[in-house]
């Protein structure tokens, strides 16, 4: 399978990428690790006429200790997130889940920014950043703005990024309390049929993978826990407000059942 023809450009900085996006408008696509975009281009489900390679912007690949939070450059690869001692110590759920993405080859190329900007509800990292209550920093022609993760995911493969904006940084609060990630799949390399991220950090954040067109916070579960409900009682509400689709792996009912079971397991493991 061969992608349709495109014009290849390479950006040396976020500023340059943004001005290239401005120049080419909706015809252009940023290319980070390429592990979501290139498969779509090979299937010709994506046919950008300009591809702007941001994969070499070294200055956007970093992990920084910011006191009560950790800042991660958007171009940081899954492999570097997985093996970061800073994250293993301060935000262990994020390092752990980065190590569950795809396989080693995928993790050598794919980036955390690409994973979030792609906005796929079946992806692992968006749910983790949601459960953590992270913030996304995006850069546009007018400068930078912060978007809370809870407002970032807007529709199937749609985010709050404007066409001329680039995601440059992800900030997550340090979270050394109990946590759990439940990824339910049938074969090692697969995406989650349903996944659950739970993080105890003062309050308990719970987010769901593949339970609707966007990565979701399990708000009913979180509110029940905040009101003193037991893990089992809170988990019984896990399918509330979800809108999963059916596919060859699971029916709607089965996904809802999985969400309840996996949320209970996650809460128990996190000690909520």
């Amino acid at each position: 399978m061969i992608p349709a023809s495109f014009d290849y450009q390479r950006a040396a900085s976020a500023e340059e990428a943004v001005s290239m996006l401005r120049e080419h408008g909706e015809e252009a696509k940023l290319l980070a690790g390429g592990h979501s975009l290139l498969p779509l281009m090979k299937l010709r489900l994506a046919t950008p006429s300009v591809v702007i390679d941001v994969g070499r912007i070294r200055e956007l690949s970093y992990l920084r200790d910011g006191g009560d939070q950790v800042s991660i450059g958007a171009l940081t690869r899954h492999r570097d997130v997985e093996t970061s001692e800073l994250l293993q110590r301060e935000v262990p759920i994020l390092a752990h889940v980065a190590g569950l993405v795809g396989d080693p080859q995928v993790r050598h190329r794919g980036t955390i920014g690409g994973s979030l900007a792609h906005g796929d509800p079946a992806s692992d990292l968006p749910a983790v950043v949601l459960a953590l209550g992270g913030t996304l920093v995006v850069q546009g022609p007018g400068g930078r703005r912060d978007i809370p993760a809870t407002e970032f995911f807007q529709g199937f493969l749609e985010t709050a990024l404007a066409p001329e904006e680039m995601l440059v940084e992800i900030r997550v609060p340090k979270a050394r309390g109990g946590w759990s990630y439940q990824k339910f799949n049938r074969r090692a390399i697969d995406w989650a049929i349903v996944g659950v991220a739970a993080v105890r950090n003062g309050t308990t954040g719970v987010a769901l993978v593949n339970m609707g067109p966007v990565p979701l916070r399990a708000s009913a579960v979180e509110q029940a826990l905040a009101g003193g409900a037991s893990a089992a009682d809170a988990a019984a509400l896990a399918a509330e407000g979800t809108d999963p689709s059916a596919d060859l792996n699971a029916s709607v009912e089965y996904r809802q059942h999985l969400a309840r079971v996996l949320v209970r397991r996650a809460l128990e493991e996190a000690g909520a």
């Binding site: 290849y8 390429g34 290139l38 390679d53 994969g55 080859q105 050598h108 190329r109």
Partner: peptide, 13 residues
């Protein structure tokens, strides 16, 4: 030095 799937990378990259 790192493994990658060369069907999912452009020669340009």
């Amino acid at each position: 030095g790192e493994s990658v799937k060369s069907c999912t990378m452009l020669a340009a990259q």
